[in-house]
Computed example of a mutant assay.
Amino acid sequence: MNLFSNTISTLEHALDYSSAKQKVISQNIANVDTPNYKAKDVSFKAVFQDVMEQSFEANKSDSRHYDFFSRPSRLPGIINKQNVNYNENGNSVDLDKEMADMATNQIYYNAVTERINGKFNTLQSVIRGGR
Rank of each mutant, 00 (worst) to 15 (best):
S92G: 09
F68I: 05
N85E: 05
D94L: 15
N59V: 10
G77W: 13
D62W: 13
R64L: 03
M102N: 10
M99T: 04
V93P: 11
Y86V: 13
R74K: 13
Y86G: 08
H65L: 12
E57A: 11
N87Y: 13
N59W: 15
F56D: 04
A58N: 12
Y66W: 10
L95T: 08
I78N: 10
G77Q: 11
T104N: 14
A103I: 10
Y86T: 11
S92F: 05
P72H: 01
E57F: 13
Y86S: 11
S92T: 12
T104L: 10
V93G: 04
E57K: 15
Y66E: 13
Q106K: 13
R71G: 00
K81S: 00
N105F: 10
K60F: 08
Y108S: 12
Q82Y: 01
F69E: 00
R64W: 06
V112Y: 03
S70F: 08
E57I: 14
F68M: 07
V93C: 03
G90T: 04
K60D: 00
T113K: 14
L75S: 11
E88V: 08
R71N: 07
N85Y: 12
N89W: 04
N105Q: 08
I107M: 03
K60E: 09
N87F: 14
T113L: 15
S61P: 02
D96I: 04
S63P: 07
A100D: 05
N59A: 14
A58R: 14
A111M: 00
I116A: 06
A111D: 06
K97A: 12
E98V: 03
N83D: 05
P72N: 08
N85P: 13
I107W: 12
A111L: 00
A100H: 12
T113V: 09
F56G: 05
N89D: 09
L75E: 14
A103N: 00
K60M: 04
I107T: 15
D67M: 03
P76K: 07
K60L: 03
V93I: 04
S92D: 01
M99C: 02
L95A: 12
A58W: 05
T113D: 14
K81T: 04
I107S: 15
T104S: 15
E57V: 15
S55Q: 07
T104P: 03
S63Q: 14
E57L: 04
F56C: 06
I79K: 05
